[in-house]
Design a protein around this nucleic acid. Structure first.
Lengths: 166, 166
DNA sequence: GGTTAAACGGGGCGACCGTTCCGATTATAG
DNA sequence: CTATAATCGGAACGGTCGCCCCGTTTAACC
């Protein structure tokens, strides 16, 4: 791979990450290209479709979340981390809410597995009601992101966490 | 107003209500027109912009909700009613989440006022924590709709309601 | 039934966006 | 330095959608 090609590819990824976080999935490719200082054609040479570019960006974030989940973090804390991740990055939130795009099953599964472990540990310790599943929690995270977006305060998350207690 | 004009206006409103509930705000005007059995031009004669048509439809729903809030309903029940309204009607949910559109301030205010009364009564009775405001609840409703859309179950609402208890 | 003005409908315009194409450019090897 | 092939950039295409226009229809009143 030629040096300029590799450099451009990275510029596109960086620009896409920044803009997607702020503008969400609706942002035009041309805007990402302009921000990256390349032409739209260059974006499409490296990523065959808009969806594949978004996938590459989002995947990176999901992996970071998975790593965090495996770092011995507390369940309630991690819940907050996930909500904050969705808040800081519109694209993440929209993809999680599957507003048109979908993520590769294996990346999703890895996050879910790490997450399920945290949840089960919390339930074994008696901190969380037994009748909630990982899917329930994912839905609640999506909901909390939507909630928090419309009120600056993230302390509403505490209400949901309180409701989760055994 | 001519009889056919009044009839067509109503057809458009009915069609818009049905389609918006299922498809959400992204639905093209032509589709609403087709469903109503009229041309797109006719839609625009009665509603100058797409937004004004949506506003008319959503307003009607908000008024129904306001009436329900004033019918002596219990706070927790009404919370569920609002979530279900958002769930049954994509357009309502998207407007509430202000995905691009906004509702006239007075209709919003009427609903909020009726709603604030319910909340205060519940707080006086000691059923709901004192540190939540009507705005908090509205945000939570939006979140619950987002949550419930991604899991068939509305019983997740119970978790949030449990968290709201004093 | 005739007259008239309101209402109709669907083709068309302009804007936007994802994607493709191709002539110009430039990194790299010999 | 030159040749060459990979890469670039941005104009252009096709599709979609909100909105407008205007020739045609039709309700309403005499």
């Amino acid at each position: 791979m030629r040096a300029d090609a590799r450099r451009n590819r990275q510029s596109v990824l960086d620009a896409a990450y920044d803009i997607l976080a702020v503008e969400g999935l609706g942002v035009p490719i041309d805007e990402i290209a302009r921000r990256a200082g390349v032409g739209a054609g260059t974006v499409y040479r490296h990523f065959p479709t808009k969806e594949s570019l978004i996938e590459a960006v989002v995947l990176d974030r999901l992996e970071a979340l998975t790593a965090k989940a495996r770092s011995g973090i507390d369940f309630a804390e991690f819940f907050t981390v996930m909500v904050e991740a969705g808040l800081a990055n519109r694209a993440i939130a929209e993809v999680l809410a599957s507003a048109g795009y979908h993520i590769p099953a294996d990346a999703d599964a890895a996050l879910n597995a790490a997450f399920a472990e945290l949840l089960q540990a919390a339930q074994r310790r008696g901190d969380v009601r037994l009748d909630v599943t990982p899917d329930d929690i994912q839905a609640l995270v999506i909901g909390c992101v939507a909630t928090a977006r419309h009120r600056g305060a993230t302390d509403l998350v505490q209400i949901v966490v309180a409701g989760l207690r055994a």
